[in-house]
């Protein structure tokens, strides 16, 4: 098995050996469940739009909680030295951590499929938007997780790591709200950079290369910066 997968397997086990995974998954499921069923019972509307709409905001708190200790904790406890002096490339460490957090996020998302099943049992499920929505969630989640891993590589303090990850994702989210205040020539670029705009596009069931490119480059750049940050100990 490649070292990256060995690392992610270890990290996943750590998640489920500690309360972190259970707390995150439970809180996430309760929150999204509340939103979904309120809409279902109060508005008598069986669709998933409210659920999808809240996700960019929810991820902003949830994902940094998952990712904050990934590298910061290893630095603080000194285990990073042991890990990195094993024959492993720095990017493999970063990718391993990323995959572990993605696995936990996807577990949480998997539980919400109950909503989709509920909708389907009550009436016709609009397949395109549902599949697109989940694909969009995984892609957008990947971007959030990559940002979280990057933030975790900057510091040895998990709380700082959480705040940095939150600030970056909030900044990217805010860009989408700012476009109307900007001059025309900037709007396109700023809208493209916002983290949730592409999710909305994919959520409509329309998969555009531009949206995929955005999330993949977001993930790529963040993980690259995390790798460089890890490598920076060898620069000085």
């Amino acid at each position: 098995m490649s070292p990256a997968l060995v690392i992610s397997r270890r990290e996943i086990r750590t998640y489920f050996n500690s309360p972190v995974a259970y707390i995150v998954v439970t809180v996430f499921t309760i929150l999204t469940g509340y939103l979904f069923f309120t809409q279902l019972f109060v508005e008598k509307q069986a669709d998933m739009r409210a659920f999808f709409n809240i996700m960019p905001l929810l991820f902003m708190f949830m994902v940094p909680a998952i990712t904050m200790r990934l590298l910061a904790d290893e630095k603080a406890s000194g285990t990073l030295e042991l890990l990195i002096t094993l024959p492993v490339r720095d990017w493999e460490v970063v990718v391993g951590k990323f995959l572990a957090a993605m696995a936990l996020l996807c577990t949480a998302l998997g539980l919400t499929l109950i909503f989709a099943i509920t909708v389907r049992s009550l009436g016709p499920l609009d397949r395109g938007p549902a599949i697109g929505g989940y694909l969009g969630l995984v892609l957008m989640g990947g971007a959030y997780v990559a940002i979280g891993v990057m933030a975790s590589s900057f510091t040895r303090n998990s709380i700082v790591s959480f705040i940095v990850a939150f600030a970056i994702s909030f900044g990217l989210y805010l860009l989408g709200r700012l476009t109307q205040f900007l001059p025309q020539s900037w709007q396109g670029l700023v809208a493209f950079l916002s983290i949730d705009g592409h999710f909305e596009n994919i959520g409509r069931g329309v998969i555009d290369t531009r949206d995929l490119v955005y999330y993949f480059s977001m993930i790529g750049v963040s993980l690259l910066v995390a790798t460089l940050s890890l490598e920076s100990r060898r620069w000085r």
Partner: peptide, 19 residues
């Protein structure tokens, strides 16, 4: 510095897999 949440055998198995 060793991962505190792993058992001795788990940790050694991890190191073996990493190598």
């Amino acid at each position: 510095p060793i991962y505190r949440d792993m058992t001795v055998v788990e940790f050694l198995a991890f190191a073996a897999a990493m190598r």
